[in-house]
């Protein structure tokens, strides 16, 4: 339906996922994971699953990012591998 938007967001999803794996800074990984969730939320919204998009935005992009940041705050910020 809106395939150019769909494609751009899909590319962003993959870029965020790969970046979250390769970035050494765990705080940055948490933020990238939030961005990934938000892009997934946009994809759900495009597919018409508004309830799922809402859940993804509040749980995936919102609270779970905060939990990751809290966990990083209590452990080390840099990863070794």
């Amino acid at each position: 339906m809106y395939w150019p938007i769909d494609l751009i967001i899909l590319i962003f999803v993959i870029v965020c996922a790969l970046a979250a794996i390769y970035v050494k800074d765990l705080l940055g990984t948490a933020v990238l994971f939030g961005a990934y969730s938000f892009m997934m939320c946009l994809l759900w919204a495009i597919m018409g699953a508004v309830d799922v998009a809402f859940t993804e935005a509040s749980v995936g992009a919102g609270v779970s990012t905060v939990f990751f940041v809290a966990a990083v705050f209590r452990t080390s910020r840099r990863t070794k591998d």
Binding site: D51, F54, T55, S58, V59, V63, V66
Partner: peptide
């Protein structure tokens, strides 16, 4: 769209924002 889960998460994150 929305409901108990989403509303609860938003309310919880407002309290978390207070703590932050």
């Amino acid at each position: 769209p929305g409901g108990g889960f989403q509303g609860g998460v938003i309310f919880g994150s407002s309290l978390i924002l207070l703590a932050i």
